[in-house]
Design a binder for these strands. Structure first.
Lengths: 121, 121, 121, 121
DNA sequence: GTGGTCTAGACCACA
DNA sequence: GTGGTCTAGACCACT
């Protein structure tokens, strides 16, 4: 069940996207699994079906799910691979953030420390 | 001179804030230095004065600049220190991003590698 | 045996129609041949009988098959001829698509090349 | 001014996409040009702003336009090139359609004739 | 039941 | 003024 924070500045539809992707990455959902229907999920998180659909459209665009009108939405075969690729692309964000910190005089050790905190936790 | 990308999705006023802070962090502007006037800067980057003012108000709120009504805006004495504090707070972002990568199976070494790229570059 | 892609955005009933017509055009089914029963086909492609029936109704409407209540469905005598007529109507689609390409500056030779690829292949 | 057929089975938002792309391909709109605002266009074609936005989101995803929140939407620099690439990709559709016709016994000359009709018209 | 499209109308942040 | 998000509720085609 997705955790949605309606007060967050992060749009609901993005939270849905992140939530679904996380479930797949964690193996809670596997390729071929059927996702909850748009209406059902909308009720569950008390959001509007249009908002859920917006998230699903983006997930399909990313190749993470396939939707078959009239039948439902399914986790795509390539979903895990695609998501791992997307994650690796985020390493560039780490580099960018680090560069910003480096520019401001933060020591390399401090940054690496911050990274390790995530892994030994 | 600030580099503003008008087609970016990053709000212009944020780009101004970031730009000014960067100049201070790099030592291009020092405490006591006078900033360009709102109208002057607005013309330079062909933006709306209201937009520039919004950025200046936020910079003052952060304690990075002080406004002396009728005389202009100046980099505050504590600006460099304040900005370095703000930077360190971003270490939490690094940890958060790393945790996300860790969850997806990215190896710690890969993340540290990405950090080092920023420092040995 | 019909090949149905349940994840396709093409409605299943259309896939059935296309599949049957293709078999007739290829001569795999001839006028007078009996088609599988609705229930049988539904089981074979694991689809809903209603879906199969919808396809059969349309095939009958097109004059490609005839239903003999209680005895089954058969390929009509005129099926091959009717299907060839329908195919020729698709030449208009080719013209329309070509016009679109022409408008965008694609050379006539390139389009003809694309056509030949289908015939010398 | 875009021509929208509300009775068409083609969704309005797709008609908008096609219409905008056509204007760019024909050179009626050039890179850097500002598109009508979502609300303005919605009024012009008497459609809902949400519908127009759906079209614009897709156009941006294709790299044909860039949108700058608060400022408006602009034809991207690469728009003409991108659209020409997309057109060439449609040559595959021509081949596919031709293959279907070939399978049904349509002569190559007839298909080429249909292509020429689009160019000598 | 499912997803796909559309309308009407609201509120927000940004320029 | 602009675009971005969201809700409520409708109608359609497909299964």
């Amino acid at each position: 069940m997705l955790a949605i924070d309606k007060l967050s500045r992060v749009p609901i539809y993005e939270q849905i996207i992140e939530g679904v992707q996380k479930e797949i990455l964690l193996g809670l959902m596997k390729p071929g699994d059927q996702l909850p229907s748009i209406r059902e999920l909308a009720v569950n998180i008390s959001a509007n079906p249009n908002t859920v659909q917006k998230a699903f459209i983006e997930l399909e665009r990313r190749g993470v799910m396939v939707t078959s009108p009239g039948r439902g939405c399914y986790v795509s075969e390539d979903a895990p691979e695609i998501l791992k690729m997307r994650l690796k692309a985020k390493l560039a964000d780490i580099t960018e953030l680090s560069a910003e910190l480096a520019m401001g005089g933060v020591k390399e050790e401090e940054v690496i420390e911050a990274v390790k905190k995530a892994f030994y936790h």
